[in-house]
């Protein structure tokens, strides 16, 4: 069963707005796509169309936060992080204001629009900013939980929303816990840390590797920052191989975060599945692009396989 993350995001904003009158939503002419339009329909007096002017949107949100509001700002991930990076850094983050940034149609999920609209480095940008929380939901349920959490997390937060319908991998009633990596499948030979669309790919890879006699643990690391180092180390215990899989550049994303967490650890071979320092490109569908960039269950399987064999020889 699959569900759309953007739809879940929009519905979650409405729910949150119903419970909390401080919630305000700002949009840069993409409301029909980010689904912030659902909030506009429900609470028009707390919804602000800011035009195609993302920088002003971000700084305006800072001003609203300074009067006690809890703003959510919306655009495609490539714009909501990159176009207004300085605004997010200077005013929102230095002062640690509770401004929540939605990066919609993230990663390669806006397959047709090509490199200008596909975000391969948004997580790296946001992760580098002090005080920023970085969230990558795995499915619609987690999206909903995260939106609620963002309003109460002190300081700024970034949520990365895939454009596609993704498999439901978590339960609706399950509570999202910030910074708590979640084991999706137990295993004892290797561990795959993944987030977003790559979690389902990792589960597929784990299924397949079982037939080769390799037991793979799959962990959903939907909180990229703050990353719980102790929890990550704990999850590796007993495994000699760890692979990180993400729909993002290999530079600065989850792979980097986990390498930083594991620096100095012996007896663990670390591998990566991600985008190898490349921009996106247009394609006729999302799956085609994921294959083109090697973001597949097959790629995770191959990596784990090779590394487990190497470790066995070593």
């Amino acid at each position: 069963m699959t569900k759309n993350l953007r739809q879940a995001y929009g519905e979650a904003l409405v729910e949150l707005g119903r419970d909390n009158p401080s919630i305000v939503v700002l949009e840069a002419d993409l409301g029909k796509s980010t689904m912030s339009i659902l909030f506009q329909n429900a609470y028009p007096e707390r919804y602000f169309e800011m035009g195609i002017a993302e920088q002003n949107m971000a700084s305006t949100a800072a001003g609203l936060a300074l009067t006690g509001k809890i703003p959510f700002i919306n655009s495609f991930a490539v714009f909501s992080t990159g176009r207004c990076y300085d605004q997010i850094r200077q005013t929102i983050s230095i002062a640690s204001l509770n401004v929540n940034i939605c990066g919609s149609s993230a990663g390669l999920s806006d397959f047709g629009d090509g490199s200008t609209h596909q975000s391969v480095e948004d997580v790296a940008l946001m992760r580098a900013i002090p005080h920023m929380t970085v969230l990558v939901p795995v499915d619609a349920n987690e999206t909903r939980q995260m939106v609620r959490a963002m309003a109460s997390i002190p300081g700024p937060s970034y949520i990365r929303i895939n454009r596609a319908d993704l498999p439901l991998l978590t339960d609706e009633g399950e509570e999202f816990r910030l910074g708590a990596p979640r084991v999706m499948r137990q295993g004892s030979d290797a561990v795959v840390f993944a987030n977003g669309v790559m979690v389902s790919k990792a589960l597929e890879a784990a299924d397949s590797l079982k037939y080769d006699g390799i037991s793979v643990k799959v962990v959903n690391v939907s909180t990229v920052k703050p990353l719980n180092r102790e929890a990550i180390i704990q999850l590796i215990q007993g495994c000699t191989v760890a692979v990180v899989a993400e729909e993002h550049s290999l530079i600065g994303g989850l792979g980097s975060a986990i390498s930083e967490a594991l620096a100095g650890m012996r007896n663990v071979a670390l591998g990566f599945v991600g985008i190898d320092d490349l921009f996106g490109t247009s394609a006729s569908n999302y799956e085609e692009l994921l294959v083109y960039y090697g973001l597949t269950a097959e790629a995770i399987k191959d990596r784990v396989h090779k590394m487990v064999n190497q470790e066995a020889k070593a």
């Binding site: 800072a62 001003g63 850094r89």
Partner: peptide, 24 residues
């Protein structure tokens, strides 16, 4: 009232404050 100094941003922040005050 706000962290300013990256030029060009203060007017937007002020606009957000003015909007917030009006809501309240």
């Amino acid at each position: 009232e706000a962290n300013t100094g990256s030029l060009g941003q203060g007017l937007s922040i002020a606009g957000g404050m003015a909007l917030g005050l009006r809501i309240d």
